[in-house]
């Protein structure tokens, strides 16, 4: 028995390291593909110039601005909605057992809706029915619908992993629920929230099909959030699939996207760390 356990332990160590190395290698493979094809065009002017010749030359300044605007709108709408729902699902289960189950099922189904369906829906609802037209606003709102399940699920998981002892202790000290939430639970659940934001941003920034029908294809510098604006992944898609000779700029844009992601993730981790600075646990 003892030996048997010892072997399992060793096997797991090997398994874990092999997996980690394999995954890293795989990702290094993809990354090196992007790097080797994208690095030669990357320069400062690429970032501050607007696209020319359907994107074959010039840069991606307007695309970056549109992407940021879309992301901001998406997060401004999705964060309060997602956070509120997650708190309800995780903290008020006793009051809302059936309600919670319905909402949770609802969200799990929403997570599996194909992005192209989101796109067609966003087009019909935001662009036409609500009259926003092809705009960064419609795009951001469509994306907000799309990242909701991710945000809610991971934030909820964050809250659920908090041991009940904290809740009892807080209740014992006479703290109200809202107070407990902000002072006790939030710092502990912060990693879940951070992961939700990171995954949500990742999903939003990587989205092509949903945005093609809502925020649109225009690569001009947007004047307001009501203008149509091309997001970075649509730019990559168009350059690689529709524009003959657009490949090298597609790779460079993909490289910029990777760098952008690194920066966003780094900042969000940093902010969460600051935010949960008074972490009660350790």
């Amino acid at each position: 028995m003892e030996i048997h356990r010892n072997i399992t332990d060793k096997l797991l160590v090997v398994g874990v390291w092999v997996t980690a190395i394999a995954v890293t290698c795989l990702f290094a493979w993809i990354l090196s593909d992007i790097l080797s094809n994208g690095l030669k065009n990357l320069s400062w002017t690429f970032l501050i110039e607007s696209p020319h010749d359907a994107g074959r030359s010039g840069g991606i300044a307007s695309v970056l601005v549109s992407t940021c605007l879309i992301l901001i709108i998406c997060l401004v709408v999705a964060l309060p909605l997602g956070f509120g729902t997650a708190v309800l699902l995780a903290e008020y289960t006793s009051e809302d057992k059936l309600f919670g189950r319905i909402i949770r099922c609802n969200l799990d189904v929403l997570a599996g809706v194909p992005s192209i369906v989101f796109g067609l829906f966003g087009n019909a609802f935001f662009c036409i029915y609500l009259g926003m037209g092809f705009s960064i606003l419609s795009g951001g709102l469509t994306l907000a619908c799309m990242v909701l399940p991710i945000l809610i699920r991971s934030t909820e998981a964050g809250f659920r992993s908090v041991s009940d002892d904290y809740r009892r202790a807080a209740a014992g000290l006479g703290m109200g629920r809202a107070r407990t939430l902000v002072y006790i639970l939030l710092p502990v659940a912060a990693p879940g929230l951070a992961v939700g934001i990171v995954l949500g941003i990742g999903r939003a920034i990587a989205e092509t099909a949903a945005l093609l029908f809502t925020s649109g294809y225009v690569d001009r510098m947007p004047g307001s959030v009501l203008d149509s604006g091309r997001s970075i992944s649509i730019h990559i898609y168009d350059l690689s699939m529709n524009v003959p000779g657009g490949e090298s700029n597609a790779y460079t844009t993909a490289l910029v996207l990777v760098i952008l992601l690194v920066v966003i993730n780094w900042t969000s981790t940093w902010v969460t760390n600051r935010f949960s600075g008074g972490n009660l646990l350790y």
Binding site: L130, G131, M132, G133, S135, L137, S224, L226
Partner: peptide, 9 residues
Amino acid sequence: TIYWHEFAS
């Protein structure tokens, strides 16, 4: 949303 809606039309 309402403001932009107006502005859009």
